Simulated assay, not measured.
Amino acid sequence: MARRKKGNRVNGWLLIDKPAGITSSAVVNKVKWALNAQKAGHAGTLDPEATGLLAVALGEATKTVPYVTDGMKAYTFIIRLGQATNTDDAEGEVISASDTRPTDTDIEQALGQFIGDIQQIPPQFSAVRVDGQRAYKLARDGEELDLHARDLFVEDLKLVSRIDDDHAELELICGKGGYVRAIARDLGASLGCFAHVKTLRRIWSCALDVEDAIQFTLLDELAKQPELLEYLHPLELGLADLPELHCRIEEVQKLRNGNPAMVTHADLEYGDEAWVSCNGEPLAIGTYKAGQIHPSRVFVPE
């Protein structure tokens, strides 16, 4: 007999406006504790000093996490001009400095080279793996790493405001795998003045928006109380970038058993990925093939 998991069956998304000074995993653990949930995970790590949207998936919503992490994300961030640090953010040691300061026009003109399909070398202090170890662990030991450039799609990068001679606020919209710290580092190099990230805030990820998030402190205030469940968003919020198909009630059990099922007519290509619902209930994610959906992830009913 299978052992029953501890905790409550909680399905959906809880969006947290993460404060600075706490890790993403600590936020997830706090959410799981506050809801006494069986299963939880997040859709994209934020550095401890970064703030903004941390989307925590609970229960069956964890099956939709890859579709959020693979999607577009938006950040606002402030860069400190005139200084480079070994971590490319304000937590590191200043390793280079310059008295040169670019004009607003200089910054705006330089941003164009970072839009579109670009290549980006991750920061030395990053979570990429080098010979099986995290780069930041090797960097802390004083190793100078030769990290390879990675592909990144940047939809938009713009100057929001020039705060003062030393600081500028930017907004970035990019795909999976982008390092804002690397953008700041490379922009500073391009401008000939050095730069690093001073503050960073994620404002949205796919259909998940920080405007719909709750403050982290609310977890303590409403822990173990049913009122906290009122802030849950449905699991299908994580599937906003996938087309939705529908099936008849007669096909539901097939999908729940992991078998192909007929779906309503769809303007999809053979092999396209989609998700299926019936009477408003999400059933599965799968591949569309000639009028059928072949499930790869099946949602367990309440």
Rank of each mutant, 00 (worst) to 15 (best):
P66G: 05
T69H: 03
C174R: 04
I163K: 05
A266N: 01
E60Q: 13
W275E: 05
P260W: 07
K5E: 12
P234H: 01
P48W: 07
Q119P: 03
P234S: 03
P282N: 09
I121N: 01
A40Q: 03
G238Y: 08
L239D: 11
P243G: 03
A57N: 08
T51V: 11
D272Q: 12
L191Q: 00
Y179A: 00
R201W: 03
D70I: 08
S161R: 05
A261G: 15
D17M: 04
N36F: 11
K32I: 03
L58R: 00
G21M: 07
G116F: 11
L147V: 04
A195W: 02
A284I: 02
T23Q: 06
Q253A: 09
E49N: 13
K6M: 10
V210F: 01
E244L: 14
G59T: 09
T217S: 15
D89P: 00
Y288T: 05
D212G: 12
C193I: 00
D209P: 07
H42M: 10
S296Q: 15
P295K: 01
G192E: 10
F299T: 12
E302T: 12
G7Y: 11
S205H: 14
V28D: 01
H294P: 01
A168G: 07
N29A: 15
D212Y: 10
E273G: 08
H42V: 09
C278M: 12
T85E: 00
L219T: 03
A55M: 07
H233L: 14
T87F: 00
Q38F: 09
P243K: 02
K32Y: 01
E211I: 14
L152I: 14
A168S: 15
F194W: 05
G21I: 05
T45P: 00
L145S: 10
L58A: 11
Q119L: 11
K32L: 08
S277D: 08
L218Q: 14
E250R: 13
V68R: 00
V160S: 00
A135G: 14
D186C: 02
E236C: 10
I107F: 11
L145Q: 09
S96V: 00
L111I: 01
P122F: 15
A37Q: 04
G41C: 01
V128D: 07
D99G: 08
G175A: 12
I107T: 11
E143T: 06
R101N: 06
L232D: 06
I121F: 01
I249Y: 14
A74R: 09
L229S: 13
N279P: 02
V210G: 01
L159N: 04
V154F: 12
L172I: 11
G7R: 06
D212T: 10
E143H: 14
A97R: 04
G82Y: 00
R9F: 08
